[in-house]
Design a protein around this nucleic acid. Structure first.
Ligand SMILES: [Zn+2]
Ligand SMILES: [Zn+2]
Ligand SMILES: [Zn+2]
Ligand SMILES: [Zn+2]
Lengths: 136, 136
DNA sequence: ATCCCATACGTTATAGCATAACACAATTCA
DNA sequence: TGAATTGTGTTATGCTATAACGTATGGGAT
């Protein structure tokens, strides 16, 4: 039985621990915040966390937010891998909204094609104030 | 005479030095690379460089590349301030292409509007292999 | 000119993010 | 069983960025 895509199964112990922390919070966490949460569970050093994060990102279960130097669990409804997500990050409440907008994705792809740029990964992070925080 | 927009004039000494370094290279530089270049000119500590960079970014003369933790001089043809640029970063040669695509900008704005997200700044960084490097 | 205020400066120290390198353990598969 | 791969734990280190302090400088306003 060859793995098709997700490899969601058979996560290692450290990967499960890190995934657990990211899953149980709403927003992003830095690697060191995760580390602090996991000291009681035997995780003691940055490399342990970063290695788990690297794999989780590779599996598509976690995304890195470059503008925040932090990581967030994938909230994509489906479950298919998708490199083409965009994020809206509220600068007031810290919430992160993961959105997959097809026409945005297509526009980016078209832009790359037009300039003959072979696209590997796209980072799209929008900063602002979310709807909920606008009330205040 | 009130400054309208650019404030390109009256840059301070440190701002000029940092801008000079960024202008004379083709690609991005990290703050510490800039610092190393400027030690001979009396710049000795990170805060000096970061403070200059902050201002230059504020003036729109420099952009920060979040996915690289580095800074690049604005190559926008016009000269108007523009928060809405996208970057293509070649993972082979390191070149950075600053592009302003109106329909991409519009798509992002529409996305924000639709979700009632009040957009402050958008970070769009595309990674891949540039046209030139594709030959190899 | 003098005072005030805002901005910039220089410096030291420290915080926060990430990886190199090494030795060892567990797993997979031939 | 043995080899190759992947994961682990640890120490040390490097890179990125800011806090906090005191001083200097320059442009109004009086
Ligand atoms: Zn996702
Ligand atoms: Zn919010
Ligand atoms: Zn620009
Ligand atoms: Zn290239």
């Amino acid at each position: 039985m060859s793995e098709s895509v997700g490899s969601t199964n058979h996560l290692t112990r450290n990967q499960l621990l890190v995934m657990g922390e990211l899953s149980k919070v709403d927003g992003p966490l830095s690697a060191y915040e995760i580390l602090d949460q996991l000291r009681d569970h035997g995780v003691r050093s940055p490399p342990q966390v970063y290695r788990a994060l690297d794999k989780l990102v590779e599996f598509g279960l976690v995304h890195k937010l470059e503008s925040l130097n932090a990581f967030v669990a994938c909230r994509h409804p489906g479950g298919e891998p998708h490199e083409k997500t965009a994020f809206m990050i509220c600068e007031n409440c810290g919430q992160v909204f993961e959105i997959t907008d097809d026409s945005l994705t297509k526009r980016v792809a078209a832009l790359a094609r037009d300039t003959q740029f072979s696209l590997t990964k796209s980072t799209i992070e929008l900063r602002g104030i979310c709807r909920g925080c606008q009330a205040a």
